[in-house]
């Protein structure tokens, strides 16, 4: 009688956790991806993620790709002397032993030329290409327009 219940109770957090599971390739762990709902398809979507490099060799995120965006790019928001600008980032460093966050007000992926509007509750894959670590594909949940951070905690 209690056994199935207990079993379900044990499974539930595991199932919830599975979606937040980081994708690990070699020394790189990619976790807590998220995007915001877009207003129509003609304005860019954003892509945020956390990357941890547990190896002893520096790496760098050099490119992103997604089937939902014809023109994905890496950008950095820079606020300097009271002016915000958004230069194109050729690559984003992921130094050995460190964690790099693509987060609001900092590095981010800008997904342009969308195939459609991204709605809250949707998700789409993004493939991250690293200089040394190869390619990592992760599923990115689309959160509300007013989301400020990932729902999944970043991998330690």
């Amino acid at each position: 009688m209690f056994k199935p219940l207990l079993f379900t109770a044990l499974l539930l957090p595991a199932a919830a956790f599975a979606e937040c599971e980081p994708v690990v390739v070699g020394d790189l762990s990619v976790s807590a991806p998220w995007s915001r709902a877009t207003i129509g398809a003609s304005r860019p979507a954003v892509f945020y993620v956390t990357i941890t490099n547990s190896g002893s060799e520096d790496d760098a995120l050099t490119n992103i790709a997604s089937p939902v965006a014809g023109m994905p790019m890496l950008h950095e928001t820079v606020v300097k002397d009271g002016i915000a600008s958004m230069p194109h980032a050729m690559s984003i460093p992921v130094p050995a032993g460190e964690t790099m966050r693509l987060a609001p007000g900092s590095y981010h992926g800008m997904l342009m030329d969308l195939t459609g509007a991204q709605k809250e509750g949707d998700s789409f894959p993004v493939t991250l290409s690293f200089q040394n670590g190869g390619d990592v594909t992760i599923d990115v949940p689309v959160l509300s327009l007013r989301a400020e951070e990932a729902e999944c905690a970043a991998a330690p």
Binding site: A45, V46, A84, M86, P104, G105, M110, L145, E148
Partner: peptide, 12 residues
């Protein structure tokens, strides 16, 4: 409006 990071943060 073509601004994915700074503008949504403030509008939010």
């Amino acid at each position: 409006t073509n601004c994915p990071d700074v503008c949504p943060t403030t509008m939010m």
